[in-house]
Design a protein around this nucleic acid. Sequence first.
DNA 1: TCTTGACTTAAAGTGAACTTTATAATCTAT
DNA 2: ATAGATTATAAAGTTCACTTTAAGTCAAGA
Lengths: 127, 127
Amino acid sequence: MLTIREVTELTGIAAPTLRYYEKEGLLPHVRRNENGKRLYDEDDLSWIHFVTALRATGMPISQIQKYVYLYKEGDSTISERKMMMLQHKKEIEKSIRELYFNLDKINYKLALYDVIESQIERTNIKI
Amino acid sequence: MLTIREVTELTGIAAPTLRYYEKEGLLPHVRRNENGKRLYDEDDLSWIHFVTALRATGMPISQIQKYVYLYKEGDSTISERKMMMLQHKKEIEKSIRELYFNLDKINYKLALYDVIESQIERTNIKI
DNA sequence: TCTTGACTTAAAGTGAACTTTATAATCTAT
DNA sequence: ATAGATTATAAAGTTCACTTTAAGTCAAGA
């Protein structure tokens, strides 16, 4: 069992953020010791990594809340949870497509700069 | 020359956002008619599309401000602007890599759901 | 024993990027 | 000529996801 400090060192997530996630219901079943201090086990670490992956791919806190709520409901919500993940997968793929699309525009801009620089070279103008 | 309404229809960007971008210095040289109403030309539309691409790829307003400031400075800032774009290109590529990395985790989760569902099928349990 | 440091909570604060509101001026159609 | 829509500005408000602060509890080391 790990203290909150050990988890922050392991994950790079700030302690207040871990408490915030827990308060918002993103981390089910984090235990406490006899004095109320948090103790994290392997399952908690898995949840933290999973929540981090969802956040890093743009899933809002509110939707992760819903997912964890369904998880707590038990096996009857498995298909709904799977559908949430399928939907989120689509969103991520869409984000990637949009990034590539806009990356093209940046590359076009960079190509223009290359043209300008080669013109400067040819005409021997100094900037 | 287009009115702000025509630009919102053309770009899907809300009029207050266009005014906000202009106020923040993201859109150089937007003209006005004799009564102070904005009139956008082709160059303005290009800037709007460019700013939109930068925003959609996560560049902060403050950095776009800096880029436009350099643009207004003239040709002597070309290499600095090109470096900004090269750096931003790297950031976008990093974002794409991270999205793929986390997409893998979501796909792993989905594979687990598939395993669970096939188990349910085999054991004939109804959920 | 004292004090230092790590933990706890609730509540307030922050920063980024808009968005809304309030008020006034101007354009458009009848 | 006038009603209703559109535009302008400045300033306040909103949302999201944390982050910081304030005030307190507790265990361990000098």
